[in-house]
Design a protein around this nucleic acid. Sequence first.
DNA 1: TCTGAGACTTGCGGGGATAATT
DNA 2: AATTATCCCCGCAAGTCTCAGA
Length: 886
Amino acid sequence: MMAVQTSTKLNLCEDEDDEPLVFKRYSSKSKPNQLNAEAKKLSAERQVGQPGKQLSEHRSSNGLNSSVQKGKMVPSTKSPPVKSPLASPKASTSSAGASPVSNSKASTSSRASPVSKSPLSTTLDDQSKRLSEQNKSTTIKEEINSIEHLAQGNSDSEDEKPIGARLGKVKPSEDSDDDKPLSSRIAPKSKVGTSGSWPYDSNERKPVVSKVQKNGSSTIDKGKASSVVSSKRPLDKVNSSENSSAKRPKVTDSSTSAKNKQVSAKKEPKEEEEDDDDDFVPISQRSKKVASDSKPSLTKQTVTKVGSSSIKKTIKKGQKASKFSKYSKSTTKPPGSNDGQIKWTTLKHNGVIFPPPYNPHGVKMLYNGKPVTLTPEQEEVATMYAVMKDTDYVQKETFRNNFWADWHKLLGKNHVIQKLDACDFTPIYDWYQNEKEKKKQMSTEEKKALKEEKLKQEEKYMWAEVDGDKEKVGNFRVEPPGLFRGRGEHPKSGKLKRRIRPSDVTINIGKDAPIPECPIPGESWKEVRHDNTVTWLAFWNDPINQKEFKYVFLAPSSSLKGKSDELKYDKARRLTDCIGKIRASYTKDFTSKDVSKRQIAVATYLIDKLALRAGNEKDDDEADTVGCCTLKVENVKAIPPNSLEFNFLGKDSIRYENTVEVEIPVYKAIMQFQSGKSGSDDLFDLLDTSRLNAHLKEKMDGLTAKVFRTYNASITLDNILNKETKDGDLSEKLVVYQHANKEVAIICNHQRTVSKSHSAQMSKLTEKIAELQGNLKELKVDLDRAKKGKPPLKDADGKQKKNLTPEALERKIAQTNAKIEKMELDMRIKEDLKTVALGTSKINYLDPRITVAWCKRHEVPIEKIFNKSLLAKFSWAMRVEPDFRF
DNA sequence: TCTGAGACTTGCGGGGATAATT
DNA sequence: AATTATCCCCGCAAGTCTCAGA
């Protein structure tokens, strides 16, 4: 299917490949930055390599009307005609202004700091390598160690720190910088051990953020924060936004809404404050100023008890509400969106496809060494387990127990098999491995044939028609039965996820559309609905948790999804206009007498500064993870004089470890919230996500906790790109982008496990570099000799090398040097990104318009940054003006 | 206000496809 | 041609947030 999909998409969007799409702008001379040589790696090769497509133009064209066009995939050609905005003149201006950023960061930045993980984590790891989750990487880091330091020259290290960076005012002294208020933010420092040093430096503000990795193993670095700081955006955002909205094709509501929003947004700030422009600044800065104003007190911290405070809070809320009445009103209905309402007028699709029935293999497993005959049903489940033999899952007791409970039920009370320990699934495992091998050995033709066959079967399910337009369906395949693979210490992992049948599935389709035929003869859908206020095409109850649902939605490239994506970013962008006010408000409340209010303030601060998730309550039958509102006392440690060390398992049981410097009032408030409680008590006992979000909505229409993540991710990307992009070759620009992307990933704590071959790869690179260095030495000797008219020395094998002129030798030396530099850069990047996942933020948090506009401004082909899926998903963003700024 | 159903977004890992090397 | 590193896409788990109802 994919193949199909993609192709289709492409057509829609991009199309043919004409020329490279580079957006061009001015050309300045390029300066050879440090990076050049190194950087080149990426770019150079790739460019050449993929001649293929570039889409810029077309793409953009498509993008323009994206909403419209998408429908029709057929006519792939259709769009081409449009012209891409890229070249627009204005672009140049904008960029020009902006670019001036400088990064003075010198090499110094201490990238060195990659802290190592804390001891704790390490131990854990060791013990199990099991999945306990994130911890896996530990070992590796050591090896590399050295490497990291190698080079560094680049910016990467420094800047960034997005998050952490900001801080407010903590110590007055530092603030001194004032001029750079923005930057003021402090950086968080890396975890643990490292903490000792304070990040801040005076002027620069903070350096430190370090992120830890999941396992703790390595931290990422962080360098200085300075970069983060934003500079103001050259262009007025307002304008740009308007433009964009204007342009927007037709997406009805969205465009309008956007405009409205903008307008309103502007107003708001005025009322309350002057916010100044700093809003865009990520957190950090603002706090200072705010703080100063409000500074009053801190002294009082009553540790109130729960009950009373809440009451007060409510009252207050009321007041506030009135104040912001305008917002609240609107709240009812999100401005732009037609939320609640109609999502489509006509909807046609072919339902879902079910996995094939189980096909028994007849291989007998052993019980106490003797072969056992199982019924197909029993065998099916045994096979699910057998196949997982070399995964970490089977090492977990919970998994085994859950599996055994469900399988035992299937076997029946009196079955020969009475305990899992005496089972030997090896025969089945071996059979499976063999099947896999066979499949692998098939000729390419055979594989292709199989693929086509599958495609043929699935084709009809891949597409839907929404309001007359053809759209791709996302997950039209019903999930096959299997053993539940919960993440982390999920209490239900290992349970049998039973097969879903048509009678479990509810279909949603247009009233006038033909009802999809049930693919399994003799069976029928559970229900057919015609609800146009929702976007799902089908759903069934999750067999593991009957209370939950599994939905079939349209693909991310669909107009429906695109529209909501755009709305999401527009909302985050609106936050730009009120963030100053919001920060001032919660800063003021750090010292509120009302404990609830104080908790809301501190929680909001953490969400804003550290990009924490909201933290909904969870049931006991789910993995024990937390978010901001559900943080436990034991997850946060106050480290004098004013730092907080966070350590908890977040979404997907990914560990969040970070030590940050915070404003004194926050520090004190946290200690108050902790006092008198035990480690497992809620830190924010008076708070939950609904209260928090209700409060946020008073501040800005539609505002919820997650918007801060989107906002901080996007604003950080925009700031870094703007500040660090210099004239230079493509590869250097890509390095800047990757660096910005990395910073965002760090802020959001998007981790990945270190690949098994990571250390091997690193040592291989190290060897190669050593070899090159050896060559270099030889070349230098030969050069010396050549200058004196002597022949070169023999090579390692004792053979005579040919005589080269000094010039030729010098050229060779330069080439070798370049190669070494490039490899060193590769290594640094690889080590640096070892535990950082860049994809998640690209897909979910970074407003694609920032990227597209930057590409246009700097003549970077958009396909160097977005792959096919992303290009399709973000087709709505392709037509932004080059001067777009978040 | 609280609860839970419901709808939709976010996130990581696996593994096939593809590109780079050997 | 065989291997290995990388890219990508998909699967599906796990969050967020809304809303209706008592």
